[in-house]
Every structure is written in C-alpha cells, then in structure tokens.
C-alpha cells in the first residue's frame, strides 16, 4: 500500500532523524485539520520540525515566541492610524499565516493563550469589531515546556482539547544522534529542501481524509474505547463526544497516510495515545499508570 504523502514523509525524515512515527502523527494531525501540541524540553528539534514542515508543504510560516508580557494584539494584530489616509488600517498579526509555531505557549498569560486558542478553534479572528478569516490551510504547532518548569502558566485542561494531538519528540535514537553530529547542521539543510506539495494540494488531501470510510464495526470500537474511559474509576472524567470525533478524524488521517480507504482498529490504536493522552485526567497521582492510554487500549476488546 503506497502512501499518497510518501514524498512528504521522505523529505521530513531527511531533516528530523529517527522519528518516523512522530512525523507520521504530525502529518496525520495536519491532514485531519487539527492543531498540534508538542511537549518537550528545549532543543529537541521542535522549531526545526515546524520549519521543515512549512518548507516541504510550501506553507507560509510565522513563529511567535510566547513570553509573559505577550499581549493578544501581538498575535492577532492591531489597527494603526495612518496619517496619509486619515483612517485606521488593520495590521494582521502572526496568526495570519498558514503554519503558526507558538513557541513555549505556556510562558504567556492565560489571556494571551486563550486568544490563540480561540483563533485555533474558530479559524477566524475578530478584531476591532471586524471578523477576519484565517488563511487556509491553517495549522498551529504549539510547544510547551513540561509544566514543572518555573514561571509558566500551564494550559488549562478545558483548553487542552483544542489540540487534536499532543506528542513529544523525545531524544533521538543513538544512531540518529550520531548522524546528526557527524553531518551538516539540519538548519542549513532546510534551505535546500524543495516543496513537494502546494497549499491547494494539501487542502485536497484534507478533503480526501474526510472521505476515509469508518465502518459500523469500527464505530463500535471507538464507542467501546470512549465508554471505557467514562467507566474507569481512576479517571476524574471520561472522554467528551468532541474527543470521540477527534479520535475518528485522527484515525482517518492515519489510515489515509497508510494508503487505506477505510479505518481499521490498528489505526485507532496508533493515534489513540496522541489524541487522548492530554484529555484524560487521572483522579489521583497513583492512578496514572492504570489509566494511561496504553492501559485503556489493553482493556478494551475489539468488537
């Protein structure tokens, strides 16, 4: 089964070494029209990944470094008075790009965070009483330092599920790291990267993802998984219907990347941890292991 996005994956693998599974997830998230949250300590290649993605897909890219004094207007844009015309002109902020990298999103104040998250959800921005649509495709990659670091505002649970997936890249495998150190710097390689898709093609792929079949038997499986999270005593709350929809879309994208016309249970299992991990809150610290995504998968039989 050949993947329709094989060239994209190939190019990305040139830049981010030894992270094929994560790259597939990132691509699945993008194809499912979701947004991505990367949780990692600095220096794991988050920015490089975003740059590579923008380059390979031919997307207009902007990066916002989140700091504690960042204001909503810094993201969305402001109206400035122009003496020449005697009127106000809206200067769009960095959010008006096809791929936005919101770096260290948990350093900004909650007010700024919610401005970003609202824009992500609505795919439009209302500023100065005027609603402006964001470009298509629109994909936000937010990165977050693990919240035990000082001086951060962890994203509230209610807003975490605006992200379709949460992944972490993690350290590269030993062989990949060796290659990394021996060869040229990856950032330099970026410039040589050629776009393999146009934004219009990407939109077409996103539409195809929506058409991937989810059979009744598969819906039964999704329901069983969601239901299980609602029954587990160790969880403070189960998955919402929105989470169920997200799971279906992500599984469709995964199946699409694998070149399948329908979703099979393995697709759901592949994306389950990334889609569900940040939406489940264990009731107590000690329950963490029993309620991890992998544990839930192991508890639910495939119908």
């Amino acid at each position: 089964m050949s993947s329709p996005v094989a060239p994209v994956l190939h190019s990305l693998n040139q830049i981010i070494l030894g992270k094929d599974a994560q790259l597939r997830l990132v691509l699945a998230c993008l194809l499912a029209r979701g947004h991505l949250l990367i949780e990692d300590v600095p220096g794991m290649g988050k920015t490089t990944l975003a740059l590579a993605l923008a380059r390979v897909l031919g997307l207009h890219f902007q990066r916002v470094q989140f700091t504690s004094d960042l204001l909503p207007a810094d993201i969305i844009g402001v109206s400035v008075y122009e003496t020449a015309t005697g009127g106000f002109r809206f200067v769009p902020g960095p959010i008006f790009s096809q791929l936005v990298l919101a770096d260290e999103v948990n350093r900004a104040s909650p007010k700024t965070q919610s401005a970003l998250l609202e824009a992500m959800e609505e795919r439009q921005v209302t500023a100065e009483g005027e609603t402006r649509a964001l470009p298509e495709p629109f994909f936000v990659i937010a990165t977050q330092n693990p919240s035990y670091q000082l001086g951060t505002f962890p994203l509230p649970e209610s807003q975490l599920d605006r992200f379709l997936m949460r992944i972490s890249l993690g350290y590269p495998p030993a062989e990949a790291e060796r290659q990394l150190l021996m060869e040229r710097e990856r950032r330099d390689l970026l410039g040589e990267l050629q776009p393999v898709l146009t934004p219009a093609q990407l939109l077409g792929l996103q539409d195809q993802v929506r058409a991937v079949r989810t059979a009744p038997a598969l819906i039964d499986y999704l329901l069983a998984l969601v239901q299980r999270t609602r029954e587990l005593p160790g969880l403070r709350q189960g998955l919402s219907p929105r989470a169920g929809l997200a799971l279906r879309r992500a599984a469709q994208a995964w199946a699409f990347i694998d070149g399948r016309s329908g979703v099979i249970p393995e697709d759901v299992q592949a994306v389950f941890a990334a889609v569900v991990g940040h939406r489940l809150v264990a009731a107590a610290e000690r329950d963490g292991a029993a309620t991890s995504a992998a544990a839930i998968l192991a508890q639910v039989a495939i119908p």
């Binding site: 099979i264 393995e266 299992q269 508890q299 639910v300 495939i302």
Partner: peptide
C-alpha cells in the same frame, strides 16, 4: 489478544 487488531 482481545485488544489486538486483525492486521496486527
């Protein structure tokens, strides 16, 4: 296994 998909 109960949670093992048919392909796997």
């Amino acid at each position: 296994r109960a949670d093992e998909g048919p392909r796997d």
